[in-house]
Simulated assay, not measured.
Amino acid sequence: MQKTYHSSCHCGAVTFEADIDLTQGTGRCNCSICSKARQWGVIVKPDAFRLIHGASELSDYQFGSHSMHHLFCRHCGIRPFGKGSLDVLGGEFYFVNVFCLDDVEPAELIEAPLHFSDGRNNNWQNTLAETRHL
């Protein structure tokens, strides 16, 4: 069921809301940045994402193909969301860090399906045989 979640970085300089259906699944990836940041997220379309405050407080990090903007608060360093455009994901998207959802219930995250992607090998649509380390 789709629900509007409110979200923020740790210091509150960046706030946003997003319409998310956690029952449709969340994701983790083994690429270099997701592994190091322990990222757990959900993809939303641009019309389901609303930045409330803090656009000027975000710093952007890109690497590799530069198809993803890894955004983080320049004050507290938290990565509440990122954005990008990939054909395999239907074009423009936001990647919301579920750990930054302020009003999510633990049971919602426990029950949300979790998909693991092999980003390390640019094999995004295939899952991994071993995921315990992610």
Rank of each mutant, 00 (worst) to 15 (best):
E17Q: 15
C9M: 05
G41Y: 10
R38L: 15
Q24S: 04
T15V: 07
R28C: 06
G25D: 11
S32C: 07
T4V: 15
Q2E: 14
G41I: 06
V14W: 02
H6W: 13
S32W: 10
Q2D: 03
Q24W: 01
Q39W: 10
K3S: 01
T4S: 07
A37L: 09
C34H: 07
H6A: 09
S8N: 08
N30S: 08
Q24V: 01
Q24E: 06
G12L: 06
I33M: 13
T15I: 06
A18P: 03
M1G: 10
W40I: 14
G27W: 14
H10I: 14
G25M: 12
L22C: 01
A13G: 02
S7C: 15
S32T: 15
T26E: 02
T26N: 11
A13C: 08
H6T: 10
F16R: 00
T23W: 00
L22K: 01
D19C: 11
I33D: 13
Y5F: 14
I33S: 07
A13D: 03
C34P: 10
T23C: 06
D19M: 08
M1T: 13
R38C: 13
A37I: 07
L22M: 04
T15A: 14
G27F: 10
D19E: 08
Q2C: 05
S35A: 11
R28A: 14
Q39H: 09
G41F: 07
K36Q: 13
N30E: 08
N30W: 12
E17P: 08
T23K: 06
I20R: 03
V42P: 06
A18D: 12
Q24T: 08
